[in-house]
Design a protein around this nucleic acid. Structure first.
Length: 220
DNA sequence: CCAATGATTGCCT
DNA sequence: GGCAATCATTGGC
């Protein structure tokens, strides 16, 4: 991105961030990374528009042993190939023919783990998010739900494979932290087909944050 | 080749 | 709570 095209407040915002490094993503515990991504900030600079949102809800997908994962049983197809990349790449796929779901690839090369970002809190570029989602009010639904997160931030399937340390698409941290006691853990959404793995406690939300999805399932 | 379907959303009653 | 929208991917033939 070109600094001169940004407003002063946007530049100040970016200056307060520290991009997550490769070591964050290549660690082996996808559940731990999934929790740690809560509170982190997704930044996109597409179409000369800066948007940023704080992650409030994630789900972990534990590779070849997880029946809910696209890479279960080492399934390796054109679509899932990016999951086998080294941690830190974007995996965006189309769901229900309509929704572009954004995932963060984690773990080492050839270990296909990923974290689905299910909700976020808008920070920067709310006007742009409203425009992209064709909404009129910035209520919690603007970036609540994985399809809405991508729509608001301008993320599409063609962004699959992008390194999340790119200057136009990255994840960063600021001074905000989430303590363990402020993390709600539940089962994952929409994975009933995964038999016993549907019961795994792999969904994480920031407690008391309104920018999360509804809880249609058993909460804890 | 082709039918089935999904890590969802929004609008309906 | 029910259900339609909508299509790339997947796997079976």
């Amino acid at each position: 991105m070109i600094k001169a095209e940004l407003t002063t407040s946007e530049q100040q915002f970016l200056a307060s961030l520290k991009m997550l490094n490769e070591n964050f993503y290549t660690r082996k515990d996808v559940v731990k990374i999934s929790k740690e991504l809560l509170g982190k900030i997704i930044v996109t600079y597409f179409d000369n528009r800066l948007t940023a949102a704080r992650i409030t809800e994630t789900e972990a997908y534990n590779g070849i042993v997880d029946k809910a994962s696209h890479a279960y049983n080492n399934r390796r197809t054109k679509r899932t190939e990016i999951m086998y990349a080294s941690g830190g790449a974007a995996y965006v796929y189309l769901c229900y023919g309509i929704h572009h779901l954004f995932n963060v690839v984690t773990n080492l090369k050839d270990v296909p783990n990923a974290v689905l970002v299910r909700a976020a809190e808008p920070l920067i570029g709310i006007e742009t998010m409203l425009y992209r989602t064709r909404k009129t009010k910035p209520d919690y639904t603007l970036t609540s739900g994985p399809g809405n997160v991508s729509k608001a931030l301008g993320i599409y399937t063609h962004h699959t494979g992008i390194d999340l340390r790119s200057n136009h698409f990255f994840i960063a941290e600021d001074s905000y932290t989430v303590s363990n006691k402020n993390i709600i853990t539940t089962t994952r959404i929409g994975v009933d087909y995964a038999a016993e793995d549907a019961l795994l406690p792999y969904r994480f939300l920031i407690k008391d944050n309104k920018y999360v999805t509804k809880l249609p399932k058993l909460n804890s």
